[in-house]
Design a binder for these strands. Structure first.
Lengths: 353, 353
DNA sequence: CTGAAAGCGCTAACAC
DNA sequence: GTGTTAGCGCTTTCAG
């Protein structure tokens, strides 16, 4: 019934050596081996179609070479993120198990539990919705954890956090909008993504403050799009517009920017003449849309590399030299946790010209 | 150093029962157990913070409850696909390992190999780029395989294939375009996605043929956008346009439709007045763009459900009743393989009005 | 350099 | 009902 698996034993006898020898050549161990033996074993293995049993190896070695990644979703940016993450981790000889928990704490908890039952060697969590305390009790000491976009988490729960500088980016966008002549500036906030939304708010407010000092803004506000009708939002941002006096709008991300530009235009409003709008993430849509959308770009590679490096250093894994050199972006942490901040770069396009 | 794992043995002695008993309650086995014992064991387990070792269980049970999914990418539709797949599979108590191989055969091969070393209980492959023969020799008998978007694969390599009816959908789109007054109709093809692109071509050609019979088309063509400049493409589709005589364009997917609509408009062309364009996939972008984009919608749920069902039937897993009833969409297979065809539905929007 | 043997943590008969 | 035991397939000392 069940196809008999080909084991290391079969290979051993087929090659006329002991199982230990087979294991040694298969794992490219430091033990000195004859060219001849190696060849014999490899030949036997491929001839028999031997395929190592990862479960058995993991159990025996007490290390799974599996890493877990918990994401709030799969769409847009997160899809790209997962992809880069996979490639990086694979290149280092690890397996990656990805779970999406739609920002629901109870799901996050279940998924974490599952991952830990699989005895993953390490964990990456992107924008966790659950509390630091709960996280600590679930993950405990055993498994190293690296966070993405987690601000102000206590030292003892994670190895560190790799954060995107949404605050700095948002502030830059506000300044940019002001420079381009906007006399009123708004941030369309999406509350559901709590942590990163908050960073955007912070940056937005800072930017507004700076700009206020320089000259007079006629108006500004943070608008929760989830709590208002489309029309109400548009009415609000239109309040101070006048010929030659456009309003500036910072959107939660490029996708939102896209949506709102289209909504504005459906109502006959003009972008960028009456409204200058900026997005965040620099996704493909921002580039190909017409007008193309000014955005804040993310260095995905850097983000992932820093995180993986953090984990591997802890694991004592040299990552097989697969990771490139990286600048040091750690920020002095009085707050406790070891945070790395990845800058975001403003890419100007037609939507704010 | 290494935190001692809490084993089933620890739980056993803490609860004052034997390890077999512990295993029994933990696996909700058919063995009759006292309420009391159950409670004791569970209490002990949670108190000690016991966490089953999946590797050990898999090894012993000779079943991993892990399924593999091979995808050509992570963006757009594939991201959604992966998500639905995960949820479905999780609901049935399985783990899903996703790999993306960017349509590169050699990567596909490596990933398949990896998945098989993990002893996955089953495999899903979406739009495989490698040949049926190679696939067969790699996967062999041991592991059941379900394909997505694989046309005309031989019977013995997979349990079956779940295919989207791109051909039927494309034909429908052509008819739609003709009905809306287009006198010339084009398909912007993306060769890289070989199999599905071919289905679109087939459907497109069929549609053209039908339409030709009815009245006169002034022109039609299949255009490989990867081999032409932007301008050349636009010139080609503009050939037969005249006031009141729009050209129809079927794009590879919604994203392409989005891109081309924007390119047309940058050149001052009007959609849908001069050009009516349709996409495929019915993604969010099609809905929110202005003009909103006519598209062919995919029933992701149906697609996934059918595939999972196919696999579980083979595995003899009742899937814990997590799968809903489904209509039978199998098509009589003279060709050999068991194919299921998921229809696509035309969603009319502004871009073809 | 090679072989024998003791686990890794759990499951599944099969006795008690 | 509950306890004993023999593996699952591989890694890893530790003698030869």
């Amino acid at each position: 019934m069940k196809n008999k698996q080909i084991t290391i034993i079969d290979v051993a006898k087929a090659a006329g050596v002991s199982i230990a020898t087979v294991s040694n050549v298969l794992n490219r161990r430091k033990v000195p081996l004859t060219e001849e033996t190696i060849r014999k074993v490899e030949e036997a293995a491929t001839r028999l179609g031997y395929r190592r049993n990862v479960m058995a190896a993991s159990l025996s070695r007490r290390k799974t070479f599996e890493l877990g990644l918990l994401l709030p979703g799969f769409g847009g940016y997160f899809g790209d993120f997962a992809h880069v993450m996979q490639d990086t981790v694979h290149a280092a000889g690890y397996h990656l198990s990805v779970y999406s928990s739609t920002s629901r704490p109870e799901l996050e908890q279940r998924h974490l539990e599952t991952l830990l039952q699989r005895r993953v060697d390490g964990l990456f969590c992107h924008g966790l919705a659950m509390s630091p305390e709960l996280t600590r009790t679930i993950v405990g000491e055993g498994t190293p954890l690296v966070l993405f976009n987690a601000w102000g988490w206590p030292q003892d729960v994670a190895l560190g956090a790799v954060n995107l500088d949404f605050a700095g980016g948002s502030a830059a966008m506000v300044r940019h909008l002001a420079e381009r002549g906007c006399r009123s500036i708004y941030y369309l906030s999406r509350n559901r993504a709590r942590a990163t939304d908050e960073q955007r708010r912070i940056g937005f407010s800072q930017g507004i403050e700076e700009v206020q000092r320089g000259g007079a803004l006629l108006g500004h506000a943070i608008i929760s799009i989830e709590e208002m009708t489309e029309d109400a939002v548009i009415e609000t941002v239109s309040w101070h517009t006048a010929p030659g006096q456009p309003a500036g709008i910072l959107c939660f991300d490029d996708y939102e920017a896209f949506v709102w530009i289209n909504r504005l235009r459906e109502r006959g409003r003009r972008v960028p003449e009456e409204f200058k709008v900026g997005g965040i993430n620099n996704q493909a849509i921002a580039k190909y849309h017409s007008p193309s959308i000014t955005s804040l770009s993310i260095d995905l590679e850097a983000q992932v590399q820093h995180a993986v490096r953090l984990l591997f250093r802890y694991l004592g894994d040299d990552a097989r030299g697969s990771l490139p050199e990286l600048p040091d972006l750690s920020i002095p942490s009085d707050s406790g946790v070891h945070e790395i901040q990845i800058p975001m770069q403003l890419v100007e396009r037609q939507s704010t010209r």
